[in-house]
């Protein structure tokens, strides 16, 4: 993994960020003068009540949205200043996403879903297949490669989602409520998997969660309330 830390040593540097959504004539300020640094190799949990701005912050760090004010720097690059086209290329190179509802394409098999981000690279078919096999092995789903999402349990689908998130070996893995739709046992398995990816493979993970049980697996937890960081807790 090639990572360039920001000037202050953090892989991710969110500085003075504000985000305002316009709904008709109304302006809704979701994030207010927010500062956050995430060092490389950290497993960070973002907690807070609904509407506190957790997912919005995750979207900004993942380059899915632009801040209204402030800067977002990842691996030394000001992503808030990138055009849509360059931001798409940046996401393909640097970010893996894991979603609450897995968001797998139902028309593709598990291995084809995992392969999706690799279609944007210059890798040959055989190289892509090798990467897919490695990612599926990492999540323990080699034997389910040919199955469609509807043939997999929720936990298995999320594992495929994680395999898709890590298949390009991204700088950052961003997880939005990855256990939110799973029962406790499957949720635990997913959290163990994320923990292993962080500890054994050095993946930097930022995870949004409501669940204190999930955040307990992270190395640090920061709390958001009404668009501001209120406190943090280390492992």
């Amino acid at each position: 993994m090639n990572e360039t830390n920001t000037g202050n040593g953090a892989l991710v540097d969110v500085s003075g960020v504000e985000k305002v959504f316009h709904r008709g004539s109304e302006d809704i300020q979701v994030l207010k003068d927010l500062h956050l640094q995430v060092p490389a190799g950290e497993f960070l949990a973002l907690m807070g009540p609904s509407g506190s701005g957790k997912s919005t912050l995750l979207n900004l760090i993942g380059g899915l949205d632009h801040p209204t004010r402030g800067s977002v720097t990842v691996a030394g690059e000001r992503i808030d200043q990138l055009s849509d086209r360059r931001l798409a290329a940046w996401r393909a190179r640097h970010v893996g996403f894991v979603f609450q509802l897995y968001n797998l394409l139902p028309v593709l098999t598990a291995e084809r879903n995992v392969e999706l981000p690799l279609l944007l690279t210059r890798l040959s078919k055989s190289e892509r297949r090798r990467h897919v096999e490695t990612a599926l092995e990492a999540v323990g789903l080699t034997n389910r490669a040919k199955h469609y999402p509807r043939q997999l349990s929720g936990g298995e689908q999320q594992r495929v989602g994680i395999a898709r998130g890590i298949v390009t070996d991204p700088t950052l893995l961003l997880c939005d409520e990855p256990t939110g739709d799973l029962d406790r046992r499957a949720g635990d398995e997913i959290l163990s998997l994320l923990q292993a990816l962080n500890r054994e493979h050095g993946k930097t993970i930022i995870m949004v969660t409501h669940d204190p049980h999930a955040s307990a697996r992270a190395s640090r937890t920061v709390y958001l309330n009404k668009g501001q960081l209120t406190r943090e807790q280390k492992d």
């Binding site: 996401r91 393909a92 968001n103």
Partner: peptide, 16 residues
Amino acid sequence: TGELGVLKAIGFTNVQ
């Protein structure tokens, strides 16, 4: 719409 959003999230450009 959601699936197309996922494709964009993982790096598909507008032109793609």
